[in-house]
């Protein structure tokens, strides 16, 4: 990467700011802007989105002047298992209920590391579930159904 004449990280970063700024600009323009004296819902965000785009351009321009560190390794396996865990919990907590949803959430997250063995993962997920049910459901009394309609017969 050092052979490149620009800092690739900052170039991507500038581009990301530009895209995000563009998205918010576009969205703000669909809203009523109003006037400076009587601002509509789109006025303030449009201002911010334009500033964001401007800063994106500055970062982009600066990136050409120096070479920087490369991005480095990306935790692909981590992303593949850590990020779906809360999503799974969200999708199933009402249907499956608190206990099974949490068990599988912990199980999914456990596989984020290549060091985790399947039996260990199962045991860990079970232990987390037991602890959480005792603390959150019984002791703190959070209003979750322990078993939801999908598993109640």
């Amino acid at each position: 990467m050092k052979t490149l004449a620009f800092d690739s990280t900052n170039a991507i970063c500038g581009a990301v700011f530009l895209i995000l700024g563009g998205f918010f600009t576009y969205q703000s323009l669909t809203l009523d802007l109003g006037t400076a004296l009587r601002m509509g819902p789109g006025y303030f965000p449009l201002l911010l989105a334009l500033i964001l785009m401007l800063l994106g351009i500055v970062v982009l321009v600066q990136s050409v002047r120096v070479s920087g560190e490369p991005l480095g390794p990306i935790a692909l396996r981590g992303m593949a298992f850590i990020l779906p865990a809360p999503v799974f919990f969200g999708l199933t907590v009402r249907g499956l209920g608190f206990v099974p949803a949490l068990f599988f959430t912990a199980l999914i997250a456990a596989f984020a590391s290549s060091r985790m063995k399947p039996t260990m993962a199962l045991m860990l997920a079970a232990a987390i579930t037991l602890f959480s049910v005792a603390v959150f459901s019984y002791a703190l009394g959070l209003p979750f159904q322990r078993f939801g309609p999908w598993v109640r017969f």
Binding site: I82, A85, P86, F89, G90, L91, V93, R94, L102, T105, A106, L107, A109, A110, A112, S113, R115, M116, A121, L124, A125, I128, T129, S132, F136, L142, P143, F144
Partner: peptide, 22 residues
């Protein structure tokens, strides 16, 4: 690798408990 699943489980419960909003 033991700590992270625990954190993820608690995070999920915690965030959901604020407003019951999936």
């Amino acid at each position: 690798y033991v700590l992270f699943p625990i954190i993820m489980a608690f995070c999920s419960i915690g965030v959901y408990s604020v407003n019951s909003n999936v």
